[in-house]
């Protein structure tokens, strides 16, 4: 079996990448889905315009992405 760090196959690198970051991706999906639902409910209760909800929702994703661990590449970065 070949080492993902040396393989050139895109598919194999993608699979290795997904496997490496599986836990973090599950966390991300769960947190973001929760964020969508909670923010939507909150903004609906406050009856704030939808565009403002979208803005806060999307900025929140940027902030979340900065504060939480990155997805790591299981192979060497190459040119």
């Amino acid at each position: 079996m070949s080492d993902p760090s040396t393989t050139d196959s895109r598919t194999r690198r993608l699979v290795a990448y997904l496997r490496q970051n599986r836990d973090q991706m599950v966390v991300d999906a769960a947190v973001l889905l929760s964020w969508i639902v909670v923010s939507a409910a909150l903004f609906r209760i406050l009856s704030v315009p939808q565009w403002l909800h979208y803005l806060v929702l999307f900025v929140g994703i940027g902030a979340y992405s900065r504060l939480t661990p990155d997805w790591e590449r299981p192979y060497r970065r190459s040119g």
């Binding site: 836990d23 599950v26 769960a30």
Partner: peptide, 16 residues
């Protein structure tokens, strides 16, 4: 970085 375990995150999601 804020770390969260997958099981915790999924539990939170289900509750939400």
């Amino acid at each position: 970085a804020v770390e969260l375990r997958p099981a915790t995150a999924v539990l939170v999601l289900v509750a939400v």
